[in-house]
Design a protein around this nucleic acid. Structure first.
Lengths: 367, 367
DNA sequence: TCCCTCAGCTGAACCGGTTTAGTAGAGTCT
DNA sequence: AGACTCTACTAAACCGGTTCAGCTGAGGGA
């Protein structure tokens, strides 16, 4: 076994208690003694055992994150890796670690939270992908697990929220398209089960209404590439099809753009497209995607800090509002086609993907 | 505080020891008593504290994973989420958890391993992205941290490896292109610092050599989209430019394809392209990408199991070889252009992305 | 009947820290 | 000088489990 506090105490000629005081910068030892103890501890290479520390102080020194997602779609969402990197940035400064749980099977999500809570594996959790009437709020309450939510749940929640408004970004996207002369601006929404799916839709509706336009060109999808294709196909089949589509995330925008092109439409000549998230790959698309640049890393950093503050009892109790993401105009948006040149969708080009046949699957995406 | 083992012992009228024996299915209690204890424990809702358990048994009941990556590129790699989901699948059955550490800053990687080892936060780690002469092998040895590596390191390693050969897939890709009549088949390799970057390159070289072809059409990139563009641009500038390019991963293939198209080349008319990984989004590209379908989830599952076996002392000591991934032919590969119709690269189309200017950045990617 | 064995259980030590209660000794005040 | 206060420290309890040594009583064998 490694060197323990007793070894250090013995070597320094003091008691265990003195070593503990010295290490934690607590009063109870003179500066001289403290220095000597620290010196000895260093020489011996003593690393206090987190297990023992945790046992006596009733802390786990770990935060939890449960990601619920269909395994096949896990790799598609650029949100989480960056978000986790942000969390890590904060945790690196406070010797906490992150316990990550991926729940793929149905029912696994609740089990995952229970697993984290039960043995006291974590001191608190960060709740992402908040849903309409999210059942996890009650679950965490029952488990007495401190938490922080990403965005404020629409049901009553005792947990502080760290929010990033998505209204501004969507509004900016719609206004950008209006300025380009578009009138028929559709919206491919994410699963309305998620509050960020809802808020983005509402933002689109509000911006359209503000311009005196109808909000009929809506298709609900599920934040997945496949769902984006299906919803895009649906909108393009409409008699008075949109000349621009605002997507609720980049993945759907990407597959939607690809689908439109495979149907012979030019982007942005016939159809303008905007995404949401500014995923790295969107700038390498052809054309590069106009999107809304969020900052998941910062979100992670702030959320982790909020949770730590809450655990220390130093949290203000107020929600934190992060800076709203802004529109990033690239080449997938352009002037509305003039009414005289309104091409009927041509025959699909040779590269149409058989797997792009629109069907309705249901899966998830992050904020 | 929650209910403890003493509460259960008292309620069941036995000693703490008996409760411990009963809970862990160890001899020392009669079946009748065991049943009664378990019953009482259930009624009281007793969840043994992992902290206490860990302290006495000197285990952390956690595995560690350190992901070293540039924060901006973190979201681009579909490997990790699926891989982690695989790990989770295994851990769900053995009440272990996963501690994830993301190291973005240089030097943070080593700190992360030390942090995991020092307080005894984890019982072992899974080593991904193995590098040439990987310094982490020595580090883990020094830290006395059990580990499992993904693929066998090229330096001497005491740790069991879980390998997935990438030779077969690359070979299949080259042979597929040869069968389509291609002669000038290039390779955009990943960072050669990584052993999987090297092995893929060697596989391409071997397959070309087997067909009696030269291996001059090589460009090293770094597994990133930007690097893929730069390397593609370089290859396309060659006097006798390739009619097909085998990429070491999907991300580079995607950005390379996009770049080629923006230069006026048709894919696969003028240039055939193959990727590696079968990332979800590749099937929604235009054209959908021919790629090599790996199974990161399975890899994670098996690696976690191998590490657990090692911790239990039940590991065979032999490396595990997973089934090699296979070629998935989609529409980005086609017959080689006939020698008579060899178009010079046309002027870039209007959507060429300014940010696609090839520069040399250096970053990383997973297996 | 006596001795032995062994299943079934208890009590206590232990893991490595934190924290509380207590104490020795120096300094201060009257 | 005696009472009092502080500082600096120690000893021991404690966190909640595991595990080891030892005890007890029932059953078997001679």
């Amino acid at each position: 076994m490694a060197v323990t506090i007793s070894d250090v105490a013995h070597a320094a000629g003091v008691s265990k208690g003195a070593v503990s005081y010295a290490l934690n910068n607590q009063p109870g030892v003179s500066d001289a003694t403290r220095g000597r103890i620290l010196q000895v501890a260093k020489e011996l290479g003593w690393k206090p055992s987190l297990r023992a520390k945790g046992l006596s102080s009733a802390k786990a020194y770990a935060l939890g994150l449960v990601v619920a997602r269909d395994p096949k779609l896990l790799g598609t969402d650029p949100f989480f890796p960056a978000f986790i990197a942000g969390i890590e940035t904060t945790l690196a400064e406070h010797d906490y670690t992150l316990v990550l749980s991926v729940a793929t099977a149905p029912g696994a999500e609740e089990r995952a939270y229970r697993k984290l809570a039960d043995g006291g594996r974590v001191d608190g959790v960060i709740l992402t992908d908040v849903r309409h009437n999210d059942s996890r709020i009650g679950l965490l309450r029952e488990l007495k697990l401190p938490a922080v939510t990403l965005n404020r749940p629409d049901s009553d929640s005792p947990f502080p929220a760290v929010s990033m408004d998505d209204t501004d970004g969507i509004t900016a996207a719609v206004e950008h398209l209006l300025a380009l002369g578009h009138i028929r601006i559709g919206h491919v929404g994410g699963a309305q089960e998620y509050i960020h799916g809802r808020s983005r839709r509402r933002a689109w509706e509000a911006a359209m209404a503000a311009a005196g336009l109808a909000v009929d060109l809506f298709a609900e999808a599920d934040f997945t590439a496949l769902g984006g294709v299906a919803a895009t196909a649906e909108l393009l089949r409409r008699p008075d099809r949109p000349t621009a589509i605002v997507y609720a995330n980049d993945l759907m925008a990407t597959s939607g753009q690809s689908f439109a092109q495979s149907q012979g439409l030019s982007v942005p000549g016939d159809l303008s497209i905007t995404g949401y998230d500014n995923a790295e790959f969107t700038q390498y698309l052809n054309p590069p995607l106009t999107t809304i640049a969020t900052d998941p890393m910062r979100w992670g950093r702030v959320a982790a800090q909020a949770l730590l503050d809450q655990l220390n009892g130093t949290h203000s109790g107020h929600d934190t509002e992060l800076q709203a993401p802004s529109l990033l105009v690239r080449a997938s948006t352009g002037p509305a086609p003039s009414p005289t040149t309104k091409p009927a969708p041509k025959q699909a080009k040779k590269h149409t993907n058989p797997s792009q046949i629109p069907t309705g699957t249901s899966t998830k995406e992050s904020q």
